[in-house]
């Protein structure tokens, strides 16, 4: 278990500001690469897709932190807030690229898309649901709300992350493997929680 200990002690030593700083570098890189023609002949789509993939990966990573601890004793809880806030930042950039560079602020089209196109509806809903979570991702709000209310609010991630996965599956043409793998992974991470919750209930019911 040497590996786990090393991971845990390293994770403890990483300062939060470093996570945020490192986390924003890829965004800067992807815009720079798009501007300088390194992302092929359709940089708008390339940036939009890349930011979308990273968003989904960060959301899934956030969802994986508790199972990693339960299953392997790998403790990354300290990084969870940073991962979540970064995920929001990536979703926001993904949305902004769509609004400004892709659909180009044609508000009539944007509104029609959000209402009529299921994959955009779902993606946009995920973004809206992330807002209360990012606004309460600070010590002040945790104290003010109290741990129980705060934790219940943040269970919204169990809705948000699958919405992100569906958003991806719904936007591709044909039956492609990658979005299905993401959804399968998300389903597994959520199923574990359901399983554990049931186990807990069962043990509680056992008379002393």
């Amino acid at each position: 278990m040497q590996v786990v200990q090393t991971i845990n002690s390293t994770a403890r030593k990483i300062p939060n500001w470093a996570v945020y700083l490192l986390g924003t570098l890829p965004v800067i890189w992807v815009f720079y690469a798009g501007l300088t023609g390194q992302l092929g002949v359709d940089p708008v789509k390339a940036i939009e897709r890349q930011l979308g993939s990273w968003s989904l990966q960060l959301l899934v990573a956030g969802l994986a932190i508790t199972p990693l601890r339960t299953l392997f004793n790998i403790n990354l809880i300290k990084l969870r807030r940073a991962v979540g806030v970064l995920a929001f930042f990536y979703v926001l950039m993904h949305l902004l690229v769509w609004l400004v560079l892709d659909i180009q602020l044609l508000w009539g089209e944007i509104w029609k898309d959000i209402v009529k196109r299921p994959y955009i509806t779902v993606g946009f809903a995920a973004f809206v649901l992330l807002l209360p979570l990012v606004l309460t991702s600070n010590n002040f709000m945790v104290r003010r709300m109290g741990p129980v209310v705060w934790r219940n609010l943040h269970k919204l991630t169990y809705v948000i992350v699958p919405l992100g996965g569906i958003h991806y599956l719904w936007l591709v043409k044909g039956w492609q493997i990658e979005p299905m793998l993401y959804l399968a992974g998300i389903a597994m991470l959520l199923a574990m929680r359901v399983w554990w919750a049931q186990q807990k209930k069962m043990t509680r019911r056992v008379p002393a």
């Binding site: 089209e109 196109r117 994959y119 936007l171």
Partner: peptide, 10 residues
């Protein structure tokens, strides 16, 4: 799933 009223020229 999407509008066909405009396009992006590559």
């Amino acid at each position: 799933r999407w509008s066909q009223s405009s396009e992006r020229l590559i």
